[in-house]
Amino acid sequence: MEYTEIIFSVFLGIGLAAAVGFRVFLPLLVLSLSAFYDIIPLNESWVWAGSLSAVIILAVATIVEILGYYIPWFDNALDTIAIPLAAVAGTAVMMATLADMDPVVTWALAIIAGGGTAAVVKGNTSALRLTSTATTGGLANPVVATVETGTSTLMSLVSVFIAPLAFLFVVLIFFGIYKFYKKLKKKRPPSA
Rank of each mutant, 00 (worst) to 15 (best):
A145E: 09
T131I: 02
P142I: 01
G137T: 06
Y70Q: 04
V147C: 11
N43V: 09
A110M: 13
I162S: 14
A82L: 05
L109M: 15
M94N: 10
I112F: 02
S53Y: 11
T106R: 15
E65K: 02
W46I: 06
L52E: 07
A108Q: 12
E65G: 04
D100W: 11
L139F: 12
T133H: 10
T153M: 13
G150M: 10
W107P: 10
T136C: 05
V55F: 01
M94D: 09
P72G: 07
L42V: 14
G150F: 00
P41V: 01
V64F: 07
A89Y: 10
T149D: 14
S126Y: 09
A113S: 12
I56E: 04
W46E: 12
S45H: 14
V104N: 13
T149Y: 07
T117E: 04
S132F: 02
I111M: 15
A163V: 07
A87L: 12
A134L: 09
I83T: 12
T97C: 14
L139T: 08
V104F: 14
F161K: 06
A119V: 13
S132V: 11
L52P: 00
A96Y: 02
T153K: 05
V47E: 13
T151Q: 06
L157P: 14
N76S: 12
F161C: 09
A49I: 13
D100P: 10
V160N: 02
